[in-house]
């Protein structure tokens, strides 16, 4: 187990380093150097090179990667190129809004997708089965911002049921929830159907397995067979799909919050991009990647916890 954890942590770090390297290189590729863009066309070459130096842009790429990581490890994500404030605080203020949205979407996707999938498997060809099939096939590929705009138009603008903009910051918990509804629906909509389909498919497969017949042969009730015996195995592949899905959910959250004007990481990165405020972009994207990597690691652990066969493989790794 210990060896497994080490391996996990190592691959986590590798992903982070890779992501930062890509970020740094992207900044290099963008036309116009960040410093001169910031200072405007009338800046003196001396001023530009001074700023370049203070931003570390004159260092070779690998040193910038190392410097960024080293600083990040100490909680310093850089300095805002415009305001001169440390970026860390700005980013950390945005994180909870994004997390709320992403986790809300995960909870809703699973909370609705799972029971719908079970129901669809119990009654293949029924109403629930066909609806989830439609949602999964029709909507998983619809970009979430399209859904977001449609939802906004209908529920906020037309019906006025939900707020149009913002995250309800500075207001009460209920208001925050209220602000969360549409974005969460926009992000999780396709996923509800997709998870329901996956649960259905894997449940139908499991229900045909020999060990389910054994359970029935010993007089276990349909409920026990379905919820205790079948679902335990059926959700294993669903969890692994979720590993991929979480990246998608986080990505969608970042987009959707821009549309809803939620002050999360997405909005932050977006406005920083507009201002060519590269340190903020870097820090924002970095945090998104961290979130992605960490949630993936958590999914892997859940996976291992659910399936003793995998658990054992990890343990064996530890023994050798």
């Amino acid at each position: 187990m210990f060896r497994y954890m080490l391996w996990q942590i190592a691959s986590l770090i590798a992903v982070l380093v890779g992501a930062v390297a890509v970020l740094v290189m992207l900044t290099d590729l963008i036309p116009g150097d960040a410093a001169s863009v910031l200072l405007g066309s009338r800046a003196t070459p001396d001023a530009v090179s001074a700023l370049r130096h203070s931003m570390g842009l004159d260092l070779p790429a690998y040193q910038r990667v190392a410097r960024f990581l080293w600083n990040a490890a100490q909680g310093n994500l850089g300095t805002d190129a415009i305001s001169g404030h440390p970026v860390t605080g700005t980013v950390l203020r945005a994180v909870p809004n994004t997390l709320m949205l992403a986790f809300g979407a995960i909870v809703v996707s699973i909370g609705l997708g799972l029971p719908l999938g079970v129901h669809a498997a119990e009654k293949p060809g029924g109403v629930v089965d066909r609806c989830t099939a439609f949602i999964a096939v029709g909507l998983i590929s619809t970009p979430s911002f399209v859904i977001a705009i449609l939802l906004l138009l209908v529920f906020s603008v037309r019906l006025g049921w939900t707020p149009v903009l913002g995250g309800g910051e500075g207001e009460g918990f209920l208001s925050r929830l209220h602000h969360l509804i549409l974005p969460v629906v926009a992000v999780s909509f396709g996923w509800i159907g997709y998870i329901a389909r996956q649960v259905r498919a894997s449940l139908l497969d499991v229900l045909g397995q020999a060990y389910i017949r054994t359970a029935r042969a010993y007089g276990l009730s349909n409920r026990t067979v379905l919820y205790k015996y079948a679902l335990k195995v059926a959700i294993i592949p669903v969890v692994s799909i979720l590993g991929v899905g979480i990246g998608d959910l986080i990505g969608k959250s970042v987009f959707v919050e821009t549309i809803f004007g939620r002050p999360g990481l997405g909005a932050l990165i977006n406005s920083a991009l507009r201002d060519r405020n590269y340190p903020v972009v870097q820090a924002g994207v970095f945090v998104v990647v961290v979130l992605f990597v960490v949630t993936n690691a958590v999914v892997d652990l859940i996976y291992a916890w659910l399936d003793p066969r995998i658990r054992e493989r990890f343990f064996r790794h530890g023994d050798q």
Binding site: Q209, A210, Y211, T214, Y229, K232, V233, L306, D307, P308
Partner: peptide
């Protein structure tokens, strides 16, 4: 088939 007749994760 004793390999598959028992539940794999219980």
């Amino acid at each position: 088939d004793p390999m598959n007749a028992l539940h794999p994760v219980m």
